[in-house]
């Protein structure tokens, strides 16, 4: 079977790759593009380790076929930090010790970033339900949830001041 040529955008840059037609986006990212930050934990959509953004929506990349991303936009963990600046979530995960083994961490950060973009001030319950598709077996989630809520508080502090100024 001939491999398919796919043109897409990954982390804001145009990219192209060859893939089998039935290959998952997860495998294409990892094997064709060497973007191994996206992890495979189950390949059945049940663990969240392979979370990526597809056209601005959080999806499990194991449940996307690689050819589907033709002309679309994919965001992975590798694109979360900007230059040498960590995203506030990444910094808070470090400060809160919100990772132990770290295999689930990329998926959590991609998913939590999607949460804060949609809901900048989530309650603990909202954060827990949004992240229920990301399994972590090490932490009991406590420090992860704290890191996410603290990130929201910090980002809102900044944003809040700016908004108040604008509204004032």
């Amino acid at each position: 079977m001939a491999r398919m040529h796919v043109e897409t955008t990954i982390n804001g840059e145009s990219a192209e790759f060859l893939c089998q037609p039935g290959e998952s986006l997860l495998d294409a990212l990892r094997n064709e593009l060497n973007l191994t930050g996206t992890k495979e934990g189950c390949n059945t959509g049940d663990c969240g380790a392979c979370s990526v953004m597809l056209d601005g929506r959080l999806v499990p990349s194991c449940m996307v076929l690689a050819p589907e991303v033709e002309g679309r936009s994919v965001g992975t963990i590798e694109g979360v930090a900007q230059g040498d600046e960590l995203h506030p979530l990444q910094q808070k995960f470090l400060e809160h010790a919100a990772l132990q083994c770290g295999i689930c961490t990329p998926g959590f950060i991609v998913a939590a970033k999607a949460l804060l973009e949609k809901n900048p001030d989530p309650t603990e319950e909202e954060a827990r339900y949004w992240l229920a598709g990301n399994l972590c077996r090490c932490t009991g989630y406590d420090k992860i949830i704290r890191a996410v809520l603290d990130t929201a508080a910090e980002m809102n502090g900044t944003n809040g001041a700016a908004t108040n100024g604008a509204a004032g």
Binding site: G45, L54, L58, V59, P60, M63, A111, L131, A132, G133
Partner: peptide, 9 residues
């Protein structure tokens, strides 16, 4: 239906 991720698909 499933997780947030699954609901995106």
């Amino acid at each position: 239906i499933g997780s947030t991720q699954i609901q995106g698909r």
